[in-house]
């Protein structure tokens, strides 16, 4: 069901662009966190986890230290939990030292309505009390529905609501790309809603 999107979709970022963008974001994190001391990266499944891993590798390259990285599943904290069939859970993996007093950087692929991030903040609340929480996203496509913003943005991508933004990553999709496409109208949304993990596929 994704194929017709990909066919019509136009790549906005390709593999080398994504690598450069992540390198810049890693440097921004080091700059703002003054050496990335106490930084914990938490990726939001599915693709946020891969991005967090890549950022952690780049941060380790810059600072020479290992940066704790984990994943944070937000499924049960979603505000639309009751609107769709029960979903399979993804992995929550908090680094051994926890997040208390740390600077948690949430990592996701696309920032859209902001509802995912709100859910992530709720989820964090049950896990510990970070010193601060920041947000890193590969693409900010606008259309926020909540007062949430990103601290580190790979690319600002002004979109219309008729468009779709899809992030593909080597680890999951076999290639790196950010694709901008048109939303199909007839019947498609219903089919999308019934996918096992509707909003976690990178298509927002």
């Amino acid at each position: 069901m994704d194929t017709d999107v990909s066919d019509a979709a136009r790549p906005v970022l390709e593999g080398p662009d994504i690598a450069r963008v992540l390198t810049r974001m890693a440097h921004e994190i080091v700059e703002r966190a003054k050496g990335a001391d106490g930084v914990v990266l938490l990726g939001i499944p599915t693709r946020g986890v891969f991005l967090a891993d890549r950022l952690a590798a780049k941060l380790a390259g810059i600072t020479g230290r290992r940066i704790p990285v984990g994943s944070l599943d937000i499924t049960m904290y979603r505000d639309d939990l009751r609107l769709r069939p029960a979903r399979a859970l993804a992995r929550t993996d908090i680094p051994a030292d926890g997040i208390d007093g740390r600077l948690v950087v949430l990592v996701d692929d696309v920032l859209f309505s902001g509802r995912t991030i709100r859910a992530a903040l709720d989820a964090l609340n049950d896990i510990g009390r970070p010193r601060a929480v920041q947000l890193a996203v590969l693409v900010d496509r606008g259309h926020r529905e909540l007062p949430i913003r990103a601290d580190y943005v790979g690319k600002n991508l002004p979109t219309s609501l008729r468009e779709t933004v899809r992030v593909q990553l080597e680890e999951e999709d076999g290639r790196d790309a950010v694709l901008l496409g048109e939303r199909r109208e007839t019947g498609a949304p219903a089919a999308e809603d019934r996918r096992p993990e509707p909003a976690r596929t990178g298509e927002r």
């Binding site: 399979a88 859970l89 929550t92 049950d126 896990i127 510990g128």
Partner: peptide
């Protein structure tokens, strides 16, 4: 298998200080 996989994720909650989910 879905129930068993979900149970594994639920098991990880038991290791947290707040053993509670809002589902």
């Amino acid at each position: 298998v879905l129930i068993l996989d979900t149970a594994e994720e639920m098991a990880r909650v038991a290791d947290r200080p707040i053993k509670k989910l809002p589902a």
